[in-house]
Amino acid sequence: MASPYLKAALITVAIAALGFFFISQLDYMRADELRADIDRLLFQAQSERLMHSYFQTMENSTSEYCKYIYGVGQEKTSRIYELADKIRYYEKSNLVNSNYRRIRDQYYLSNAELYLNARAAAKYCGSSPYATVLFFYKVKEDCPPCRAQGELLDSVVARNPNVRVFAFPIDTGYEFIDVFARRHGITEVPAVVINDKTVLRGLRDEAEIERYLDDSAGASG
């Protein structure tokens, strides 16, 4: 006579197996979604780099290069945190997929590369009316002012389409992020760096950031 509990255990194993099948499907679907988003970023970074090489290789191609870079800048007005948030929450709701380390690596790498491309473009094409903003925050521990600052920068970007914000968490241990932060002497977050010149420490509201953006544009223009 088979014990009812043995049967129940078998049913449980079967249900759990089915459940974990669906769970892994969901987890991989989400990881794929993130990878697709990051692939778009990587593609953008690579095309910018390609245009930069093109401009350095071919003669009289500066205007074409600048036109391309400005065009990209104009398109890029979505939320800066959006993908970072998505990665964070998907990772939290994830049960079986353990590839998030790689996803995060690629995300921050592509972000860094886009930032570098933007600086290179500013050097050759002039930073006015085109501004880059570096934004440092924390992810490992709660940083309420960072979240507020991120949202404020979003609304700045929404109003000024030619501002590009690059957000980097300083507590993730990526060497290249540490290099960026060290260069501007940043140890506390939130911190905002406008056009690699003006360093704003602590939470700043939209009006203040916009004023510095104007100043910075006026100074270099």
């Binding site: 948030d85 998907y90 939290k92 079986v96 309420p144 002012p145 979240r147 609304s155």
Partner: peptide, 28 residues
């Protein structure tokens, strides 16, 4: 908590938190 640091930024952060934190379906 961001609300206590900046009103409009805090409200927006709260909305984002609800959109992602609350409505993200947990795999389990």
């Amino acid at each position: 908590s961001p609300f206590f640091f900046n009103l409009s930024g805090g409200l927006a952060a709260g909305a984002t938190g609800i959109a992602y934190g609350l409505l993200t379906f947990q795999s389990a």
